[in-house]
């Protein structure tokens, strides 16, 4: 067992060796001040509720913290892990989000907090994302990624799909919605105050759609499928090894 653990540790360490991450995060300086404030105001309630939920679950569920540590570190690593993907734009790198998995396991609000912490560290030290764009990045990866993944999982469960496929759908939808959030953040840059609201919204919507199609048509399309497979396998593994974790977190009902 020790040898296996050592082997896993070495593989993890080698996998996490130096990579320069380039991905979906909106970079520092792109957003004008009005949008910086808007996105921060939008995500603050989610982060506050998530923090309270985390504290509550920590008291009610003593073993919750190791799971938060595991999933939180996984989200951090996933979201700055550039995976080479060959898309229509040739050879490029993109990263998964990981918030679909965290939302299914820990709940969407706690997942927002985890995404916020991961994005804050990346913005501060890894030159990845930005402090002024933290709000919009939390919105896309944290809020949209988590809630879409969570509801997609629940919907797939109601449809009676197997756990792997529920996780797969959660991963795919979460990734798609994360990039949709990035497209919204970028698309709103063309929102001009001089125009009437409907015209400005039309221009923004057109820009959002264009960016989202470009995202999906290039590298992100294949990557969201890969993320779905990873989430599906992760949930299947937990169910196989420690199903009680899923029962106690009410991810699945005890049979």
């Amino acid at each position: 067992m020790k040898k296996i653990l050592l082997g896993i540790s070495i593989v993890i360490a080698l996998l996490l060796l130096p990579h320069v991450a380039y991905a979906m995060h909106i970079t520092e300086g792109i957003l004008p001040p009005k949008w910086v404030i808007f996105w921060f105001v939008l995500v603050i309630p989610f982060v506050v509720i998530g923090t309270f939920r985390l504290k509550k679950k920590k008291k009610v569920v003593p073993g919750f913290l190791p799971l938060v540590g595991l999933v939180g570190a996984a989200v951090f690593v996933f979201s700055c892990f550039p995976i080479p993907v060959i898309g229509l734009n040739g050879m490029a790198t993109a990263h998964p989000a990981g918030t679909g998995m965290s939302a299914v396991l820990l709940g969407p609000f706690v997942s927002v907090v985890i995404a916020g912490i991961a994005l804050f560290i990346q913005a501060l030290f890894l030159a990845h994302g930005g402090l002024t764009t933290l709000g919009v990045n939390i919105f896309s990866m944290g809020v949209l990624g988590s809630f879409s993944g969570y509801f997609a999982f629940r919907l797939a469960q109601r449809m009676g799909l197997k756990l792997f496929w529920c996780g797969f759908i959660a991963g795919v939808v979460s990734d798609l919605c994360t990039y949709m959030g990035t497209s919204i953040g970028l698309g709103l840059l063309v929102f001009e105050g001089d125009e009437s609201f409907s015209v400005a919204m039309m221009h923004s919507a057109k820009a959002m759609l264009e960016i989202f199609v470009v995202f999906m048509a290039t590298s992100q399309g294949p990557l969201c499928i890969a993320e779905g497979i990873v989430v599906g396998f992760a949930l299947s593994y937990v169910y196989k090894v420690r199903p009680s974790i899923l029962y106690n977190l009410r991810v699945i009902k005890e049979q």
Binding site: Y22, M24, H25, N89, A92, T93, A94, F215, T218
Partner: peptide
């Protein structure tokens, strides 16, 4: 292998 934050964002 350019990141999509450079090539798209």
């Amino acid at each position: 292998w350019t990141g999509i934050d450079v090539s798209i964002v």
